[in-house]
């Protein structure tokens, strides 16, 4: 490559020639469109962009992006992407995974990628169901959920993905949903900007096996009263007239109150960059499920050393001290003797 200027691209340039095989009406389409429209604006190169996925409906994503891509194994995408990202710091690596993929079979890889802070943009499409295997409950399905594998209702207590990510020492944690392209793009853009692991939970409607799972909070008519949009440095409030807000109680818990009752000054000011994760965690616990007012936006965005850069720094330091490695010297790095 000789040119250094990033070529101007459009959505079309980022779309592959592969026929898209998601069910008509699936929330995955709008996420795909959001990204294909966003990437031309980020000033990045297609050849330097890689999508790595696991297995599941969401994980077909890389086939539809005209970039480098790797459709891997159920749950393993964060592990595979880690090896790619730390050896190729010049690349933009996106991990696309689902809730079963990332939180069930791949839970271990996800939490370790997050704590290491590898430079990955991890987008987890949460539809609270297993789609590709045709409708079993997932680790984010609500208790009591009746599915093919839980005819009497699920007895599993679900994960809260945001709490999990914060607990796993993630440095960037956000939530968005498939009904709001602008919000998705803002979250994906911020995730891309973040140096280290970025975790974005995307509420995604599976209209075949779990239709309307999020409609109680993401439906156009209910959004203003059910989604609590987080904005850095601003008081946390929501409602058609921003009449409700969030306060912190003396025991540390957060509570939703009427602004009229407590006054604006009493409201909690959102601080994404707060190093101490307690408040971000408390925010993630504000809602007990997708039928209650639920925060979306960036819960946490803090700075910590990026794993690949730190790995590279150790290599650089050793090479500075010892040169770039001499095989002949290596072969003599313990006692040797000569036979004449």
């Amino acid at each position: 490559m000789t040119s250094t200027a990033v070529p101007i691209t459009t959505k079309k340039d980022w779309s592959s020639d592969q026929e898209i095989r998601w069910c008509p009406g699936c929330g995955d389409y709008s996420i795909l469109t959001a990204l294909q429209m966003l990437l031309p604006e980020l000033g990045v190169r297609r050849e330097k962009t890689v999508f790595v996925s696991g297995i599941g409906c969401a994980s077909r994503f890389p086939y539809y992006m005209n970039t480098y891509g790797l459709h891997s194994i159920h749950g393993r995408a964060p592990a595979i992407a880690t090896g790619l990202a730390v050896t190729r710091p010049d690349l933009d690596v996106w991990v696309i995974c689902g809730d079963g993929d990332a939180l069930s079979i791949g839970g271990n890889h996800l939490i370790h990628a997050l704590r290491r802070n590898v430079n990955l943009n991890i987008l987890m499409f949460n539809n609270q169901i297993y789609g590709l295997t045709k409708g079993q409950y997932s680790p984010t399905s609500e208790e009591g959920k009746v599915t093919k594998s839980t005819p009497f209702g699920s007895i599993d207590h679900p994960f809260n993905p945001i709490s999990l990510a914060i607990g796993a020492e993630a440095t960037f944690v956000a939530r968005t949903h498939d009904m709001d392209r602008k919000h998705m793009q803002e979250m994906f853009g911020r995730a891309h900007q973040h140096d280290g692991s970025s975790f974005v939970e995307v509420y995604q409607n599976c209209n075949v096996f779990n239709d309307g799972a999020f409609s109680a909070i993401t439906g156009k008519d209910v959004r203003s009263t059910m989604l609590i949009e987080l904005h850095n440095g601003e008081p946390i409030r929501f409602g058609a007239d921003l009449e409700r807000g969030v306060v912190q109680l003396p025991d540390g818990r957060l509570e939703i109150v009427s602004v009229a009752d407590v006054g604006t000054d009493a409201l909690l000011i959102h601080d994404e960059h707060r190093d101490e994760p307690g408040l971000a965690f408390a925010l993630s616990r504000l809602s007990n499920g997708v039928h209650e007012p639920t925060p979306i936006g960036i819960f946490r965005d803090v700075v910590r050393g990026e794993y690949g850069a730190e790995m590279q720094a150790q290599v650089d330091l050793e090479q500075e001290k010892k040169g770039t490695g001499d095989l002949a010297a290596l072969f003599r790095s313990a006692t040797t003797w000569t036979v004449d």
């Binding site: 194994i73 595979i80 880690t82 090896g83 990202a85 730390v86």
Partner: peptide, 9 residues
């Protein structure tokens, strides 16, 4: 897994 990712890279 990481090794395979590095091989891809």
């Amino acid at each position: 897994g990481a090794a395979l990712g590095a091989a891809f890279g």
